[in-house]
Design a binder for these strands. Sequence first.
DNA 1: TGGGCAAGGTTGTATATACAACTTTGCGAG
DNA 2: CTCGCAAAGTTGTATATACAACCTTGCCCA
Lengths: 255, 255
Amino acid sequence: MSALQKPRYQQAKDLIIGRISTGDLRPGDRVPSENELVEAMRVSRMTANRALRELTDEGYLHRVAGSGTFVADFRAGSHVLEVQNIADEIAARQHSHSAGILRQSLQHARGEVAKALHVEQGTDVFHLLLVHRENGLPIQLEDRYVLADFAPGCLEQDFTRITPSAYLTAISPLQEAEQVVRAAQPNAAVRNHLKMRQDEPCLVVLRRTWSHGRPVTFARFHHPGSRYELTGKYTPPGTPGSTSADVVELEKLEQ
Amino acid sequence: MSALQKPRYQQAKDLIIGRISTGDLRPGDRVPSENELVEAMRVSRMTANRALRELTDEGYLHRVAGSGTFVADFRAGSHVLEVQNIADEIAARQHSHSAGILRQSLQHARGEVAKALHVEQGTDVFHLLLVHRENGLPIQLEDRYVLADFAPGCLEQDFTRITPSAYLTAISPLQEAEQVVRAAQPNAAVRNHLKMRQDEPCLVVLRRTWSHGRPVTFARFHHPGSRYELTGKYTPPGTPGSTSADVVELEKLEQ
DNA sequence: TGGGCAAGGTTGTATATACAACTTTGCGAG
DNA sequence: CTCGCAAAGTTGTATATACAACCTTGCCCA
């Protein structure tokens, strides 16, 4: 193997995912066949097969034996927790993601932040505050604290290009997460940042994420109740993945 | 290949899963290595590798290169979806659960209910509407539809003693669930039933549950935003279970 | 013109082989 | 006794090959 860090099947997966997220490949479109991938990427057919098979298991593609491989119709977040990166979630909907940075600073952890991160009061933490937009419309206010010694480069990072979640995941796999979901009335600042209507409720997610046995980041996410919802799917032991089309259908039901 | 319907990698997966579900293999136990599987099942190492790799991706196993393959520590409690029975949830908090029945009738499925349950308009369904209280205070309005031929005894059941969720689970294991979580303003009826303050937002959960490949029940849950929240924990492959005390701690953080 | 059949492409599975990277074990030298 | 290193075992990846099952296309024949 060449001096490449990523395995080749992963490179193939990245290639396909890239073409999907840029809109080059759209739902229903035909994806290169295994043999075409073999020629294009100079890999064996088994490697191409693994890439396409895994993407199918992950819900991105849809395969028909004898016919071909196609981009799956939709991809709603499988587990509520699986979708940690809002940019991916938006890209999967074929929409455009943009972000605005409201704060990016080094602070001393105080009160509940120190408590949530299991550190002493005054420990260095980065404080990030940003607004995520889907097709220009704000859908998430991310208020995040990150342990400074876990991600020292936080102040230099351009989080409008790489979301904090993606950045932190790249540093080290985030292994455990806990979250709380609640409905609440936003305060004026939040409502303002998210351009919410008066009296529109807020879907609030508090999430703490662990890496290698210690909490490394704690975030509060506020979403406009009218423009965002969490979807989940639960399949205990047995049955393999069914399509996510049903979740989509459920999503559309009005209360 | 012999006259076997299932692929051999699937047979290998079933073998491991079987040993886990009978308790023969317990969390942390060592699973047969690829080479041992090769000998035991007379398959190639690639086939054994695929079986173990897929089980790892699905969360059942945990692999360490150079060391071995082990049963993953836990698999329940990962999702928000785990708590299906509000009475159990309340009991876990050492509080008292009570329920009031507002409706318990046989109806014909219409509109979105028929659509959610994948049946024709007019199919018989039971409609249940009840309020769950924690220490006397309403915390959930359960608006549930159940396929009549799945649970024929629904009208005779005393749902103040056994919750619908517990009753349905007893009939047949509910295997898959999908849900959507959103924040919304309740209508007057809901607000009234839940004794909610004016302008208090509502945490709404839509959940559809499947059994043996077909949807059997569809429910809308409304909760007062000030008295109820969903908590979840996610532990992908490795780390052993920590107590839920941390989640509790996170719960108490104010926004 | 219409139907049927054959050919080619595609996915699904299975095997044998090879090498790299990592972990554990155990032995031998100091 | 301890440290270090070598050997063996394990997972991770990659390739070449093979055959079965299935779908689509297009051609040939009635």
